[in-house]
Design a protein around this nucleic acid. Structure first.
Length: 423
RNA sequence: GUGGACAUAGCUCAACGGUUAGAGCACCGGUCUGUGGCACCGGGGGCUGUGGGUUCAAAUCCCAUUGUCCACCCCA
């Protein structure tokens, strides 16, 4: 094979196309019902937007997981590793703060991270994200989480859990970090090497260490929830109340920490046990400091991002289906019997398509047998015979390919019938 | 960045170091020139991922490399 796709990328072949389209449509539908406008921002941005936005100490930046290159004008450009920074840049650059109401935006598109691929992790992957900028109410957090719940419900995905936590704010987080550090100070010697490093760089990270020997220490470590300042405590309890009110099932995970630096207060993740080690399908939270960080006024905001590939895996695992099962066959296959009747078939196809009837033909065949074989192969619902007889009598045979029943009529009549067939 | 497993036809997989690397499915043709799915018969398809090495002889053993899958780190 001469050319292969890049490591960590993947193709969507025609047979899987409808599966992704269906998932996307559903997301768009839900976003619409929540009145989040679909926005678009470039895949390419100045690298600085992300180093600043995502956080200098985040792994995306530290571990060089961003695809960065220099363009011909010696500008440092990055392939976006996530959507929030770009969405906030869009918010600021377009003056959305001035419109008198909160910006509710969603987006769908590819993100890039130079990591080693594994199950559910790609170098180019797609995210659906939603951002609610300009409102610090706990109700916003609730709405975003509910949006996730709606989505999973509509997709009939069982086996998912919603985890929430609060990681405090500028006021209470530092105090908690101190507490945590003090707690681990005399234990870190007995813990794993990674934790030793984390102790210096980011104590919070120790909490999601999976090392068995570290478990006991972590399990009895102080949790942020016990150290929230009154305002954050109030915010979190409002979020919980809001979720309960809407009957959104959630679990509190006191050790839920997010990887990006910009989060504060509410953070949440939606996970599936059916997914293997990359079990987080969707994740988000509040990021009240990011807008200012990126040069705007102090503006509260919250959002989430959902990985389409992981969502797809969850659909397949939870519903025991395959992507190819979503294939939508052509409604009618036009079989030109004899090459000389091909132009008539094209006319018929044109007529049908104008009425919104999906119609196909294979121009390389001219025998009815070949046509039916090919119609069968593509699972067409009906086949229309277009031969000398039919044209002469203006009476065409429409064959139902699943039960073999046949009806006849002129093209208008056939079109009328096909229009009434539910897709 | 680290570790493990794997790499043979379009797909799923066989083949003890020893003839011309096989099977099922798929594809093409025929039985069947206006009726698909079924059946039978026939056919095309491979530098065994790539590059080295060991050997009289390598798909098979060794090294390297690339890729895939899985896991770590971390994350959607």
């Amino acid at each position: 094979m001469l050319y292969l796709k890049l490591k960590g990328t993947y193709d969507i072949p025609p047979a899987e196309s409808d599966f992704f389209e269906e998932a996307e449509n559903l997301m768009k539908e839900i976003a619409k019902s929540y009145c989040y406008k679909k926005v678009a921002f470039p895949i390419l941005e100045y690298a600085a937007l992300f180093t600043r936005g995502v956080g200098e100490s985040s792994d995306i930046v530290v571990k060089k997981e961003m695809y960065v290159f220099e363009d011909r004008g010696h500008r440092l450009i990055a392939l976006r590793p996530e959507g929030t920074a770009g969405a906030v840049r869009l918010y600021l650059e377009n003056g959305l703060a001035m419109q008198g109401y909160s910006a509710k935006m969603c987006y769908l598109g590819p993100m890039f991270r130079a990591e080693n691929p594994q199950a559910g992790r790609y170098r180019q992957f797609n995210q659906f994200g939603a951002e609610y900028i300009g409102d610090g109410s706990p109700a916003v957090d609730v709405e975003l989480i509910q949006m996730n719940q709606d989505l999973f419900e509509k997709l009939s995905i069982k086996d998912i859990n919603i985890y929430i936590n609060s990681i405090g704010c500028k006021e209470c987080r530092p105090a908690y970090l101190e507490k945590l550090k003090a707690y681990f100070a005399d234990k870190i010697g007995k813990m794993c090497a990674d934790c030793g490093k984390r102790f210096e760089t980011n104590v919070l990270r120790i909490l999601d260490c999976k090392e068995e020997s570290c478990r006991p220490f972590i399990d009895s470590a102080p949790i942020q929830l016990d150290s929230l300042c009154p305002a954050c405590g109030e915010h979190f309890s409002e979020v919980k109340k809001g979720l309960e009110n809407l009957k959104v099932l959630y679990e509190i995970d006191p050790r839920l920490v997010r990887g990006l630096d910009y989060y504060n207060r509410t953070v949440f993740e939606i996970k599936s046990k059916l997914l293997g080690s990359q079990s987080t399908i969707s994740a988000g939270g509040r990021y009240d400091y990011l807008v200012k960080e990126l040069g705007g006024m102090e503006t509260p905001a919250a959002g989430f991002a959902l990985g389409l590939e992981r969502l797809s895996m969850a659909i397949e695992a939870s519903r025991n289906v395959k992507r190819a099962d979503f294939y939508r066959p052509p409604l009618v296959y036009l079989a030109a019997i004899g090459r000389e009747n091909q132009s008539k078939a094209m006319e018929a196809a044109s007529l049908f398509r104008k009425k919104g009837i999906p119609a196909v033909t294979e121009y390389r065949y001219d025998s009815l047998k070949k046509h039916l074989k090919s119609a069968d192969a593509m699972k067409a619902v009906y086949a229309l015979f277009i031969g000398e007889e039919e044209i002469k009598n203006n009476a065409y045979v429409l064959r139902n390919l699943s039960d073999g029943t046949q009806t006849t009529g002129n093209l208008e009549e056939i079109a009328g019938f096909l229009t009434s067939v539910p897709l």
